[in-house]
Design a protein around this nucleic acid. Structure first.
Lengths: 143, 143
DNA sequence: CTCGTGGTTCAAGCACGCTTGAGGTCAAGG
DNA sequence: CCTTGACCTCAAGCGTGCTTGAACCACGAG
């Protein structure tokens, strides 16, 4: 069984078939081969989708993920991929650090028995508030 | 200057005033004091908003964040907060691990000179695909 | 006094990421 | 044969998280 139907693929990656069709429609998945009209996926797609989900949770938009995955499809796209990747790496780092801070905050708050974030003594007076490297929403961003 | 106008607060946290009004409207920020009809925020709000952004990036919905922040407002909410926090902690951990995997994947791909994720040899054949603890969504699959 | 700036409310609109519904095809099984 | 069920397409709908627009108010500078 090196090929998967859409239902089975969906089950494997924990999504709904409709989501996979949607991904195809927006170019995040290549148009799947059809057998008797039905989509048939190579098993490798599971991997691709795992990457997609990971990137998504890390705050990438589907468009960005598509850019990352598709790079290399033509020459010059590689350049784009490197650019995007290099731009995103520090963001990703920042993001991980923040996630850890949040995790620790939640854990500490649970441990210290305080009632919430705001009130928690462990969290008092430290925040920078505005961070560099993630400027005010800079919209003209993606393609 | 221990008080901030909405514009200034927005600038400090890198958001738009409209977003802050929206947060107030959905109860994520307490209804701000008014001076001559205008919202005036204590500086501490900067911290609260930093927490909000952090949690948001970590995949919490605004409703969940509100729950986390507001817990303690009344008795019994504390129970809820603990429950939510305990439920979210492992999620947060999983999430951080995944973010790190992604980060490393991106970094490795950049380093190895491959063209993209899919093609990258460093990433070949390892994925579990479906993870436990985040089950296959299973809501009466399709029609 | 008038203007500009920056605030107010409320309703509507938008982008993203899917889901749902209508209407149809195909293949196996009772 | 005829139903069942998984799949197909296409269009419309939905939840979240804001933004935008219209219409109005308040304050300070020129």
């Amino acid at each position: 069984m090196r090929q998967l139907g859409i239902g089975e693929l969906a089950k494997r990656v924990g999504m709904r078939p409709s989501a996979l069709r949607y991904y195809e429609s927006v170019g995040l998945l290549p148009s799947a081969e059809r057998a008797a009209g039905r989509r048939v996926y190579p098993v490798a797609t599971v991997r691709r989708l795992a990457l997609v989900k990971m990137a998504q949770r890390a705050g990438f938009t589907l468009a960005e993920i598509r850019a990352l995955l598709d790079a290399g499809a033509d020459r010059g796209a590689t350049r784009q991929w490197r650019a995007l990747a290099e731009r995103k790496l520090p963001e990703l780092d920042l993001f991980i650090r923040q996630a850890q801070m949040l995790r620790d905050a939640v854990a500490d708050c649970l441990a210290c028995g305080c009632m919430n974030f705001d009130t928690c003594g462990l969290l008092a007076e430290d925040g920078p508030g505005s961070r560099p490297g993630e400027g005010p929403t800079t919209p003209g961003d993606e393609a």
